[in-house]
Simulated scan of single mutants.
Amino acid sequence: MKPANAAKTALIVIDVQNGFRHPTHWGASRSTPECEENIEHLLKAAREYNKKQGEDAEDKSNAIIICHVHHHSIYPDSLLHPDARLEIDGKVVEAVQPQSFAQPEPLEPVFIKDVNSSFIGTELEAYIKSKGVRQLIIMGLTTDHCVSTTTRMASNLRVVSVTSPTGELDEGDIVLVDDACATFSKGGFDAETVHKVSLASLNEEFAEVVNTKDVLHGVFGY
């Protein structure tokens, strides 16, 4: 993990959508109750960092790129289908819409997928490469599905890698924020176990797994 002024950095915010607020649809329990608050902190830190860079920050070499990925299922019975609705706090909302704290700002691109990987059927890989990104910071829902698949493919596709004229590969950095992602109980295992085992299988092979405080300090200098 590197400071934002030392490596072109992108935040990838995956599937932070209303559909995942349903209390029972995805599982009997959910891990990481602090997940949403931490994602909000990281988004705020990235946006404040960019404001310090001045106007048109997205065009500056040291600005942080903020990418949002949303899931639009092709299956009508999915709670993340574009036609799905659910009631939250007495109001009926579109399930595919982002949760209020994760609303994209005007200069933040949104990529729509219908599978687990954020790189299949989207322009995310091309966008990251076009911006010269050398460090990804990944967060969102859910740890063992779309977050894990995206992290694995980011590594396998070498989306933040560059090859020198002599053929030497510099793989860049892929960072996964453990307390800014969450999942649900399944297969007889409680949610925290599913979450922790999923992270353990990614750490030091597909990504560097860190926590929100690590990122706030190491990337943004807080």
Rank of each mutant, 00 (worst) to 15 (best):
N116T: 06
I120Y: 12
Y127K: 07
A102L: 12
E37S: 13
E37W: 00
H68R: 09
V69K: 03
R152M: 15
M153H: 14
E55G: 02
S29I: 02
S130F: 08
I88W: 00
P23R: 10
K113M: 11
K2A: 15
T149I: 11
T166N: 09
A45V: 04
I120K: 09
C35E: 08
A102Y: 10
Q99E: 12
F119I: 03
P76S: 14
T151D: 05
I39Y: 10
T212R: 11
V215T: 01
V175L: 11
A180F: 07
E208L: 13
G90F: 04
A7I: 05
K52L: 14
D214F: 07
G27Y: 11
G54K: 05
H145Y: 08
A180Q: 10
T166M: 07
D56I: 01
P98D: 08
V92T: 14
T149K: 02
E205R: 15
M153Q: 14
A207Y: 04
E108A: 06
Y49W: 15
S148T: 04
F20K: 06
S100C: 04
C181Q: 13
S78E: 06
V215N: 01
V197S: 06
E171G: 01
S161C: 13
A45P: 02
V96L: 07
V177E: 02
Y222V: 13
H70D: 04
P165A: 07
E168H: 14
V197Y: 07
P76F: 10
G140K: 03
T183D: 08
R85T: 12
L43Q: 03
I112H: 05
S161Q: 09
A46R: 00
V115G: 08
P109K: 10
V177R: 02
V159S: 09
V219E: 08
E108W: 03
E36L: 15
E171W: 01
E192F: 02
D83H: 07
E125W: 00
K131W: 02
S198R: 01
V215K: 01
V93S: 04
A57W: 10
T9Y: 07
R85Y: 05
G167D: 10
S73Q: 06
T212Y: 12
L176F: 12
V133L: 02
L202W: 01
A182Q: 12
L157R: 05
F189D: 06
P109T: 11
A182R: 15
T150V: 05
I174R: 07
V147C: 06
K113N: 08
V69C: 12
Q99L: 15
P106R: 09
K52R: 14
L42N: 01
R152W: 05
L107T: 13
G54M: 04
A10V: 08
A7L: 13
K213P: 00
V16P: 00
V160A: 06
S29F: 01
